[in-house]
């Protein structure tokens, strides 16, 4: 069903490629044209933001991170997933909050968990972790059992 939209998108933007993922419509959008593609999709009635997250392909792909946006059209029922590969050296992605305000917290979460900086986000702070937390816990090289308690203990000599 959403295939019509994907074809239209690929006709309009040459650099957009589609991937086959079961029944889901998935397109890969390079970072440079992400804002243009977002504007185009917004005009095509892809009005509802669904989810935004990041995949960490540590050692499995050339571009380590992939930002994933999931969109839905309330009028046509289309669903589309956009994926934007990012290099770990340059973890900056344009924010889509100006098109869909519902991505506000989702992008903050992606920043918190993976360290992707969303350029143009109105309020990019950590959201689930505390401010003093160092590192990004959902990255594949962050050990699962690492602990960072937020407790100020007295030095042993003061006891």
């Amino acid at each position: 069903m959403s295939q019509a939209l994907v074809t239209e998108l690929m006709d309009r933007f040459e650099q957009v490629t589609s991937v086959s993922m079961g029944q889901d419509a998935v397109v890969i959008v390079p970072r440079d044209i992400l804002l243009d593609v977002a504007g185009f999709l917004k005009e095509k009635n892809m009005d509802a933001p669904v989810a935004c997250t990041v995949i960490d392909w540590l050692g499995k792909a050339n571009a380590r991170f992939e930002v994933v946006y999931q969109l839905r059209s309330t009028t046509q029922g289309y669903r589309l997933r956009m994926k934007t590969p990012l290099d770990s050296e340059d973890l900056v992605c344009p924010s889509l909050t100006e098109f869909w305000s519902g991505f506000n917290w989702q992008e903050r979460e992606a920043y918190d968990m993976y360290g992707v900086v969303f350029e143009g986000h109105p309020d990019l702070r950590r959201i689930l972790m505390y401010e003093e937390f160092s590192g990004h816990p959902l990255r594949k090289d962050y050990p699962k059992d690492k602990r960072q308690p937020l407790i100020r203990r007295k030095a042993v000599t003061n006891v």
Binding site: A51, G102, W105
Partner: peptide, 15 residues
């Protein structure tokens, strides 16, 4: 490999 939850509470609460 990855399991992300699109949680309705989270999305609604941001408003």
């Amino acid at each position: 490999y990855k399991c992300h939850v699109r949680s309705p509470s989270f999305t609604t609460l941001q408003a």
